[in-house]
């Protein structure tokens, strides 16, 4: 059992929880994730470790309520427990002194860039962060980013904050105007694909954090397999970060849609059973 110590709504449909998990916190590195299961009948879902505190023995998870499990998790309060949390899983982001780096975040994906930003700063890199969302209130954790980043560029579809338009436009300008060594993008597949297409002609090394469906997250099932330069890789143990220019995004998008009917069915049943109010 893993206790939720703190819970907060950080944006529409996005919550953050701080969970008591001392061992995971001790070994967590930027880019790692956990797999959790809320209760005995629950599904195992992966969530990135958005922050961790070794001293306090806690990890922070940020999640967007888009389906049964995340909705249900959104109804938990401080003091409630999560049945299973396993981690820290996946390869950590390779941290070294690159020079000038850019982190590109779309929607909720942004927040998971936070530990990477901290790590890159520890290695004394210059880091520009570009965060994009539909509208201002979806720009999660922008204050925290501001604290650490050398430069923070915001973009919104509706112009409510920062520059009006897409992250890719801001990224392109940045590439043209500076000497970037590496780009790292996290967000919806379409956005990561678009980033990849922007950086490719410039030969800018680009990492993306892929989010395929996972089951156990320890390399045992193959559910999370992705196609990297024509080769099958397991995102949970060989990723989740891969060279963007080698990713088959279309295949990933197909595979992510595989359980859409079941996801809708589960959500409908959940909403109906408790009218959206119950916990289990």
């Amino acid at each position: 059992m893993y206790k939720i110590l703190h819970k907060q709504n950080v944006a529409p449909q996005v919550d953050a929880v701080i969970v008591d998990a001392p061992y995971i916190a001790t070994n967590a590195q930027a880019g790692n994730f956990v797999v959790l299961r809320l209760h005995d009948r629950g599904e195992r879902i992966p969530l990135t470790i958005a922050d961790s505190d070794r001293q306090k023995g806690t990890i922070t998870l940020l999640f967007q309520k888009i389906g049964k499990t995340t909705e249900e998790m959104g109804r938990l309060k401080a003091g409630d427990t999560i049945k299973d949390v396993a981690g820290p899983l996946g390869h950590p982001t390779p941290m070294k002194r690159y020079g000038h780096c850019v982190l590109v975040g779309g929607g909720i994906g942004s927040a998971t860039l936070f530990p990477i930003l901290k790590g890159l700063k520890e290695k004394r890199n210059k880091v520009t962060v570009i965060l994009g969302a539909r509208t201002e209130e979806l720009l999660v954790w922008k204050d925290r980013f501001k604290e650490y980043a050398n430069d923070l560029v915001l973009t919104t579809d509706d112009g409510s904050a920062g520059r009006k338009g897409l992250v890719t436009e801001a990224l392109k300008d940045l590439i043209e105007s500076s000497n970037l060594k590496i780009a790292l993008a996290v967000g919806p597949i379409r956005m990561m694909q678009a980033v990849s297409e922007v950086t490719k002609p410039y030969g800018l090394k680009t990492l993306v954090s892929l989010n395929p469906v996972m089951v156990e997250g320890t390399g045992m099932c193959g559910a999370c397999r992705v196609n990297i330069a024509g080769k099958t890789k397991f995102a949970c143990i060989e990723g989740p970060e891969f060279d963007a220019h080698e990713v088959d995004f279309q295949e990933l998008a197909n595979r992510l849609g595989f359980y859409r009917d079941e996801e809708e069915q589960a959500m409908k049943k959940y909403k109906k059973r408790c009218n959206g109010r119950c916990k289990k």
Binding site: E43, R44, V215, E216, M220, C221, G222, A223, R225, V226, N227, T232, E251, N254, R255, G257, F258
Partner: peptide, 19 residues
């Protein structure tokens, strides 16, 4: 091999037995 509805047996069996 990565088409939808191609399972590795371990995933298929894990979904049913464990989950």
């Amino acid at each position: 091999e990565n088409l939808n509805n191609v399972y590795f047996a371990s995933e298929f069996l894990t979904r049913v037995n464990l989950m």
